[in-house]
């Protein structure tokens, strides 16, 4: 291919040379055809670019997610580096029992598709998301490594810390937790429903409240740190104030215990 033609096409030739070359093209049908073909290639390329490119909505959600990550880093809250959190087999066994027992579903309303949050993790090679993936999208699953943790952060909605192979799947308009273990922290979300089998344990947390949730083989424990949540188990309903801990008995489908303020 004539490299001068390409440079003419790209506007890289000087004015005089470009003028001379355009004049010569009127007599060179082959060159004109080549130039037309290059135009077609470029326009096809631009159309491909339009189709694969990110939409405005995705750009905006990605921007917000990235800001949240950078803020975290500026504030000196790097996720912990790889370390074995749960080495002992007994913990692995407990985690396995949880995996078999729990079929929890957490629904978190989310208005739009696209990048919805970020994932940070200690041992990336064990994470279910793509090898180097650090963003969370609808309908993706996150599985924490057995030795290490995965932090899920949907800015302004919720944060979770999964460990011991805990797994969460993000649905189209929902977060569906298949099973969870270790500590899970929700922050600043509006409505969350936990389900175990056919039984719904409803936790409605007010915006800007922070609670910690732990699942064990017999019960779920919710410790309210700020704001209030409403917990519903079976026919019982209880408001959980800041500094209060509530247990949901998984065997009996009821609220079994409510503590006073934490120290």
């Amino acid at each position: 291919m004539n490299d001068k033609l390409v440079q003419l096409h790209d506007g890289e030739l000087g004015n005089d040379e470009a003028t001379r070359m355009r004049a010569s093209l009127t007599e060179e049908a082959a060159d004109r055809a080549l130039l037309d073909a290059m135009d077609r290639v470029d326009r096809t390329l631009v159309e491909v670019d339009r189709l694969i490119g990110p939409g405005a909505e995705r750009i905006e959600s990605g921007k917000q997610a990235l800001k949240a990550i950078l803020r975290t880093k500026v504030n000196g809250h790097e996720p912990r580096r790889a370390r074995a959190v749960f080495r002992r087999p007994v913990f692995a066994a407990v985690g396995g029992a949880l995996a078999a027992a729990a079929a929890l579903a957490i629904w978190v309303a989310w208005p739009a598709a696209g990048v919805i949050g970020t994932v940070r993790y200690d041992v990336p090679e064990n994470l279910r998301l793509g090898k180097r993936s650090a963003v969370l999208r609808l309908e993706e699953a996150v599985r924490a490594p057995w030795e290490g943790e995965a932090d899920i952060d949907v800015p302004g909605v919720f944060q979770m810390r999964l460990s011991k192979g805990g797994e969460v799947k993000i649905g189209r308009r929902a977060s569906e937790v298949r099973w969870i273990s270790g500590r899970v922290t929700f922050q600043a979300f509006a409505d969350v429903t936990l389900r175990l089998g056919d039984t719904a344990y409803s936790v409605v947390s007010r915006p800007n409240s922070i609670a910690q949730l732990r699942t064990f083989t017999e019960y779920i424990e919710l410790a309210q740190q700020s704001g209030t949540s409403v917990v519903v188990a079976g026919g019982q309903r209880q408001t959980v104030e800041a500094g209060t801990t509530v247990r949901l008995d998984l065997g009996r489908s009821s609220l079994t215990e409510s503590d006073g303020p934490e120290q």
Partner: peptide, 27 residues
Amino acid sequence: GQVVLQKSSDQVGVDSPTRTAKLERLV
């Protein structure tokens, strides 16, 4: 089953408003 609560200041940390603002502008 005891829950070990963290103080909120441990989770939020001390922000650096100027640096954060610069980063957000960059983004």
